[in-house]
Design a protein around this nucleic acid. Structure first.
Length: 524
RNA sequence: GGCUGAGUAGCUCAGCUGGUUAGAGCGCACGACUCAUAAUCGUGAGGUCGCGGGAUCGAGUCCCGCCUCAGCUACCA
């Protein structure tokens, strides 16, 4: 049974062939928001990310760039992937590279166990081979020949006939796990999420599983098969194991028991590896399968999947240099329904940034602190008797906090933000209706003025806590300005599941001025 | 070809087991207000709910057919 207090969440480990684009950053942010939320809610949280560095493709890229593969990986990791973490403000607890000893040793131990237990056998891998590509071709790259090659199968890249070649390979008896996997999907409908992703996985497994070739001998950039040094491990088999080699498998059973099983956030392009192959591997090794595999959608640009070849690839820094990491995180979490494809456009980003972050939340903070400074010398006012309107705010905050937590637990990050934003909108409306600037002109209404501003400020306190997993930088600034850091302690230590409890900011708490949280970005 | 999902206001999207005049945000128009990042609040205009049939007292929401788009249909990570 899953341990309720443990929340181990992973991103995919990224292939170091290329530089990151916003799709990678999106995955990182989603996992990070979930991790920050659970961590602040008191769960025993561990966020893992990392890089996948083996395989023929990396060997080729490295060679083409006149580098050794490890050298090449080191360079990409240092120059591109580690900086990405900082760019998007990741709070990962670990970063694993598949070239690290802890991983390589873990993979070998895992392989040896499967081999010893009879789940792996030596066989003949027979497939169509392209001399031009120097590799076996997947079905997607095999097409019918034309002209001189009519009737033959040719490579889609070279348009030359393919040869049927055999190679000795080690195979994982994945075919034996089809029924167990179907039973898993049946018994745990939330194992693969969202439901659309689950459907595809079930349909795939229902048509029957073949055994999986897990070794390669035509190149050597990989983890050697422990009982046969002529072979290296198939890169996916290697990569998937990072989730356990980073958490103590096999030499630290205590840590492993504490972390595993985990929750995997993946792009839908790699769903099958995580929802089929990976659980089959774990079953074979006698380990628990993941708690959940959640597949998020693509980011679409102009209605099409983002791609470098179509010049729609966007580097995270292009956005973050202009709007900041908080805005990046907020925008993609809010505008994209988690689990669905999402449309990205600069126009939409700019519009939401101004309407929601600058005019909505940022301005709410500004106007509130400005009035506290002006009417109460910058301290948290006293609350007198609550009117119905005040009570409505109190109730809304409580409800928003509860519902947001439920949404996050269900991977509905966008819904959580939607509910939290009801508070932002309600507070702006409340201020306009209560007209504190009018109350301020009548000394007899001094107590009422204090109550109104205390209510809004307390609402801001709750917002700072609830939004801290998504926009950690802005909420930290707000937290300091509210004086909350002095009286309530660090923002990141505020229990998230108590965020909706009213009256936490003591009256008399000194506040300080707040720099504009989300400055307007001038248009060209 | 088969399977899955989607096609709802200018844009991005909600609409669960069918039920009063189809919703939100943005954008737009008008008005109110001035504490605030020329921000805020209110009101309004705007949709034959992809197309065509069907069962139902009643369908965006069920059934049939069709059109369009995307994904999956295994060893590229």
């Amino acid at each position: 049974m899953p341990k309720p207090d443990s929340f181990f969440i992973t991103t995919p480990i990224f292939y170091v062939n290329d530089a990151p684009h916003i799709g990678h950053a999106y995955t990182e942010v989603a996992a990070d928001v979930l991790a920050r939320w659970h961590r602040q809610a008191g769960d025993d949280t561990w966020l893992l990310t990392g890089t996948d560095e083996h395989g023929q493709k990396i060997l080729r890229t490295a060679t083409a760039n006149g580098a050794e593969p490890k050298e090449w990986a080191d360079r990409l990791v240092k120059n591109e992937w580690i900086p990405l973490l900082d760019t998007v403000n990741m709070s990962n607890d670990d970063f694993i590279r598949t070239t690290e000893p802890r991983h390589e040793e873990g993979v070998q131990a895992f392989l040896q166990k499967l081999y010893d237990d009879g789940h792996v056998y030596a066989g003949e891998f027979e497939a169509l081979y392209c001399v031009g590509c120097e590799e076996f071709k997947p079905k997607s790259e095999i097409v019918d020949g034309e002209g001189a090659f009519e009737g033959e199968k040719v490579c889609s890249i070279h348009s030359k006939p393919l040869e049927l070649l055999k190679e000795k390979n080690y195979f994982f008896k994945m075919s034996a796990f089809g029924d167990a996997l179907l039973k898993l999907y049946e018994e745990r409908p939330d194992f693969v999420q969202p439901a659309s992703a689950r459907n595809e996985v079930v349909a795939f497994v229902q048509q029957g599983l073949e055994d999986l070739s897990i070794s390669r001998s035509s190149f050597d950039w990989g983890i050697p098969i422990p009982w046969d040094q002529e072979h290296v491990t198939y890169v996916w088999f290697d990569a998937l194991l990072n989730y356990v080699t980073a958490t103590g498998y096999p030499n630290d059973p205590e840590t492993f028991a504490r972390r595993w099983p985990g929750v995997h956030i993946v792009g839908k392009d790699i769903l099958r590896f995580h929802a089929v192959i990976w659980p089959a591997m774990l079953m074979a090794a006698g380990l628990e399968v993941p708690k959940h595999v959640f597949a998020h959608g693509w980011l679409l640009v102009g209605g099409e999947k983002m791609s470098k070849s179509k010049l729609t690839g966007i580097a995270p820094n292009e956005i973050i240099d202009v709007f900041g990491a908080d805005a990046f995180r907020y925008y993609f979490m809010r505008a994209v329904s988690f689990g669905h494809d999402g449309s990205f456009s600069w126009e939409d980003l700019t519009a939401r940034y101004h309407a929601e972050l600058a005019n909505g939340f940022g301005n709410l903070a500004s106007r509130t602190l400005a009035m506290n400074a002006k009417y109460f010398d910058g301290v948290q006012p006293e609350t007198a008797e609550l009117s119905d309107a005040d009570q409505a705010i109190v109730d809304l905050v409580a409800r928003a906090a509860t519902e947001a937590d439920a949404h996050v637990n269900a991977f509905e990050i966008h819904e959580a933000l939607s509910v939290i934003w009801e508070v932002v909108d309600a507070l702006n409306g409340y201020i306009t209706e209560m007209e504190p600037w009018v109350l301020a002109k009548d000394e007899a209404k001094r107590a009422r003025l204090g109550t109104v501003l205390a209510t809004v400020t307390e609402g801001l306190r709750a917002l700072a806590v609830l939004l801290s997993p998504v926009i950690p930088e802005a909420t930290e600034k707000l937290w300091v300005a509210l004086g909350a850091k002095e009286t309530l302690g660090e923002l990141r230590e505020q229990p998230l599941r108590d965020a909706g409890a009213w009256g936490q900011l003591p009256a008399g708490t000194p506040q300080s001025s707040l720099a504009v949280l989300f400055p307007r970005v001038e248009q060209d």
